[in-house]
Every structure is written in C-alpha cells, then in structure tokens.
C-alpha cells in the first residue's frame, strides 16, 4: 500500500505565504516533510512544467530532486485547464481540436518521466454547461475518448476527477458520462470529498465503477452542498455560500467521508495502485498544510492500513 501526496502547500515566509515552488529551499523543505511522515511519492500539477524548466531544467531533473529526498517518484499530474466556452469546453465540439492539441503538447512535455495518470476535471464549471443534457455529456465523452487515446499512446492513463462544481457531478450525470466513455481509454479518479459534497456516496460510486478506477484523492469535507453552491456564479470553490473552506484532511474531526468503509471497498476490489492524499486549501481559516499532511498520514497509517489488513484477511 503506497501513499502519494498531492502538491498543495503553503508556508509562511518573511514576505507572506509562499508555496513550495518559491525557492529550492522551500521545495527541499516541502519534500522532506512529506517524506518524513511516510509518504512514498508525490503528485503534482502539469502546469508546473514552466517552473520546473526554469528551476530544474527538465521534468526528469525535478523528479531526481524529489528522489534525492527519499521519495520514490512523481505518480500523477493534474491537468488544471482554463475552461472557457469560447475555446476550451468539452461539451462544445468546436473547441475539441484546441483541447486535443493541448494534450499532445502536454504529454510531450512530460515524456521525460513515467507517470501513472493524467487527471482531468472532465467538464467545465457547472454554470457554463447547464442545462446539462445527455447530448452535452455525450459530446464531452467523445472528447475524452480521443484524449484518452493520446495519453495512452504516451503510456499514461487518462482519468477523470469530478469536482462538485463541474458539469458532471450528480449521480445521473456521472452514470451517463461513464456509459458514453470507453473503459479502455477513460478512467475514473475518485475524490472522496468532492463526491460527498455533491451528495454522491463515494463508497457506492466507487463500488459501481471499481474496474475503471485508477486512483483516489483521500480528502475529507465537513459540508454537503445543499444550497446549490455547485452552480454559484462566479465561483463555488472559494466563494461558496456554504463555507469558506470545503476541504479538510482525512482524520480531522467533523469529517463526513467514511474512510474506513471506503478503504475496505478499495481492498475488496483488489485495487493495487497508488493512494493519493489531498487537502487543497487546507490553509484556509488558519489551517496549517504541514500539520494537515501529517495528520492525514497518521490516519492512513494508524487507522486505514489496519482496516485494510483486516479486510484483506477476510
């Protein structure tokens, strides 16, 4: 059972909060902290490519820097696209050529290392896609089938991560999407908190599509979106009505995700890939990314790994 940590980080500096990409020293400290509490690897964002080239010369060099601090490798990248109905919208076919070219370029940029997955939010913001119709989901699925072929050609799986505020987030929308996508080309990346916020039970959802799942974000939330924040303009993620902070590390108090049940399901389904931990924006409301990262790993080691052993012994 191997754990990877997804990228998000803030720490104080003399000139205000910084992320780990600020200096070699801040990256060094980030990686050492992640390694110290027993994570085996990291995930990152592929738009970090430009910083990586500037500071490390190549993606492979950066991965070497990661490895020198006791971590195995970079497992996944998240492709955070700037969705826009005018030029980059999966449900609008006229934008597909632009998107496909973006993935060709991206896969080339990251060809220096072996990734497991490239993770995408498969739809635009909900309000840019609504009304969400079967036709729009079908168009979206057609795009990702093509993107999946491009990434697979580069030896990387395409996998979809459904933010609670994206155009494919309800149970019905998800079912439609996975019915129209090719299981050989389009995979699923289950973010426990995002589905929980969208009132989709992460365990049930995972069980249903377990054979298409290529990874997870183990992440908690204290809130479900019961007021329609998912379609809030101009933003749901930071400006939602429900809360200024949607996401918490697993193992924190007040969380809604049943991680023990989730872990049992992961073991029952024979999943043998990496387990990623994420708690984006954990610094909101006075939170501390370093501590959250330790607490989540404590929970993984002291609770989830034991549950996994129990389940495996059954």
């Amino acid at each position: 059972m191997k754990w990877s940590y997804m990228d998000h980080w803030r720490s104080p500096s003399p000139n205000g909060p910084i992320d780990q990409w600020q200096t070699y020293d801040s990256m060094d400290r980030f990686l050492k902290q992640v390694a110290a509490v027993g994570y085996d690897a990291i995930d990152t964002f592929d738009h970090r490519y430009f910083t990586i080239i500037d500071q490390y010369g190549s993606v492979a060099n950066y991965q070497e820097f990661v490895q020198e601090r006791g971590l195995e490798r970079i497992v996944n990248t998240f492709h955070a696209a700037a969705y826009d109905q005018r030029n980059y919208a999966p449900h609008i076919a006229s934008t597909h050529d632009n998107i496909l070219e973006d993935f060709r370029v991206t896969m080339d940029r990251w060809s220096g290392i072996q990734l497991d997955n490239i993770i995408v939010m498969p739809a635009t913001l909900y309000y840019d896609m609504e009304p969400v119709t079967e036709d729009k989901i079908k168009t979206t699925a057609e795009l990702w089938n093509k993107v999946g072929a491009i990434t697979l050609d580069a030896g990387v799986k395409l996998t979809c991560h459904h933010e609670f505020f994206c155009g494919i987030q309800s149970k019905e929308e998800l079912d439609t999407f996975y019915a129209y996508t090719d299981p050989a080309l389009v995979n699923l990346f289950v973010d426990t908190a995002q589905h929980c916020i969208a009132s989709v039970d992460p365990v049930e959802f995972y069980e249903k599509y377990a054979d298409r799942v290529t990874g997870f974000h183990f992440k908690d939330t204290r809130h479900q979106d019961l007021v329609g924040d998912y379609r809030r303009r101009p933003d749901a993620e930071l400006m939602g009505t429900t809360t200024p902070r949607w996401f918490h590390e697993m193992g924190d108090e007040g969380g809604l995700v049943d991680f023990e049940a989730f872990m049992r399901a992961v073991v029952r389904n024979g999943y043998d890939g990496w387990l990623s931990v994420e708690h984006d924006k954990a610094n909101k409301l006075g939170g501390d990314h370093a501590e959250s990262t330790a607490i989540a790993r404590w929970y993984a080691k002291n609770v989830l790994e034991k549950v996994a052993r129990e389940e495996a012994a059954k």
């Binding site: 933003d235 930071l238 200024p244």
Partner: peptide
C-alpha cells in the same frame, strides 16, 4: 499573496 486568497466578500 496567492491566487486562491482574498476571494470572498467578507
């Protein structure tokens, strides 16, 4: 200080 700071009305 960061892209995801200072977004809320409050």
């Amino acid at each position: 200080p960061s892209f995801d700071d200072f977004t809320r009305r409050r």
